[in-house]
């Protein structure tokens, strides 16, 4: 099986779905790429090169370079979706979602509900988040908690190339608005990915490792860190389960509670500030639904309640580290 990067897996999903279904279109800033620059049109493919090669293949009608106006991109995409297209709109950084929240939570996420189930909004918003790129406080956030709390939106956080492709194909074929949150830190991660198209259902956690001592729930770029922590813990004889929910909405509560039933200890790793985070959300799930199973307080490994620092040493300290995950697990034992 081919080993490809997370970036390439996303590119492959877009290319295959565009080839399969003419109603799939891309729109965003520089998704064609290279316009006005030194290279040919299509030579860049977005700020991270994810859509590279799609403009030459599908042309300007289906790969639409937009003005730098996030509210226009998402508004136009939501409108296109209700008229029967399947737009994949790109927001360069999730940090920019603020100016188009009305289009997302008041419009796209409400159409099906407000029109009595008769409106479909097959909109995908691709965007990226996460710290570690030295990009400053306005280009490094993870805003999945804000999006996860909105009824009518589905929120996806792929943690590896295989999941990125299958979850994006599922997002494109889904009839509801989906926010697809890519992790900047993972674009170069490699893994086995089938060349054929495949769907991964929403709301099904991936269990990467089984262990009876504790359950680590981790999201997006925190999943590989949780796996590294699990390797270190194994050397000390501590065996942990690592569970990646894959989607924060819907959330596979059943898998988390089943695992907690077996281990009795829960550690949630979430790259976001602690208040109203997914860590707080999953901890609340555990204490409200599985209190009797808990053998120790739930561990929450999050960022501090601060903006993402620009100083590299502080930025590195801001992101939950492998050491902190190991320590949090040991604190529950």
């Amino acid at each position: 099986m081919a080993v490809i990067s997370y970036r390439k897996a996303i590119n492959q999903a877009l290319e295959q779905e565009m080839a399969r279904d003419e109603s799939v279109i891309l729109m965003g800033i520089d998704v064609g790429g290279g316009t006005g620059g030194s290279g040919d049109v299509g030579s860049v493919g977005g700020v991270m090169g994810v859509t590279k090669g799609l403009y030459p293949k599908f042309g300007p009608d289906r790969v639409i370079d937009t003005p730098i106006s996030e509210s226009a991109i998402i508004g136009a995409a939501a409108g296109a979706a209700v008229t029967g297209m399947r737009p994949v709109a790109e927001l360069m950084f999730v940090d920019f979602i603020g100016v188009c929240l009305d289009q997302i939570y008041n419009q796209a996420a409400k159409f099906r509900y407000m029109f009595g189930g008769k409106a479909r909004t097959p909109l995908v918003i691709r965007t990226m988040g996460g710290a570690g790129m030295r990009a400053g406080a306005q280009h490094s956030q993870n805003l999945h908690p804000i999006l996860t709390m909105i009824p009518g939106l589905k929120v996806v956080m792929p943690s590896n190339p295989y999941d990125a492709k299958g979850l994006l194909i599922k997002a494109i074929r889904d009839d509801d608005p989906v926010v697809f949150l890519e992790s900047k830190a993972l674009y170069d991660m490699k893994g086995e990915v089938p060349e054929e198209a495949y769907e991964i259902p929403f709301g099904e956690a991936n269990i990467l490792r089984d262990g009876r001592d504790a359950t680590i729930v981790a999201f997006g770029a925190m999943v590989p860190r949780a796996m590294q922590a699990a390797d270190r813990l194994a050397k000390d004889g501590v065996k942990v389960t690592v569970l990646d929910p894959r989607t924060t909405s819907p959330l596979d509560e059943e898998a988390i509670l089943d695992s907690l039933d077996e281990t009795g200890r829960l550690i949630v790793v979430d790259e976001s500030p602690p208040r109203c985070s997914l860590a707080a959300d999953v901890a609340a799930l555990a204490v409200s639904q599985a209190f009797d199973a808990l053998k120790a307080p739930v561990g929450m490994v999050t960022c501090p309640h601060t903006p993402v620092p620009f100083a590299p040493n502080l930025e590195d300290a801001y992101i939950p580290s492998v050491e902190r995950i190991v320590e949090a697990v040991k604190n529950t034992l």
Partner: peptide, 9 residues
């Protein structure tokens, strides 16, 4: 392994 195979289109 089987899940991955079944999910292919």
């Amino acid at each position: 392994g089987v899940v991955r195979m079944l999910r292919l289109d």
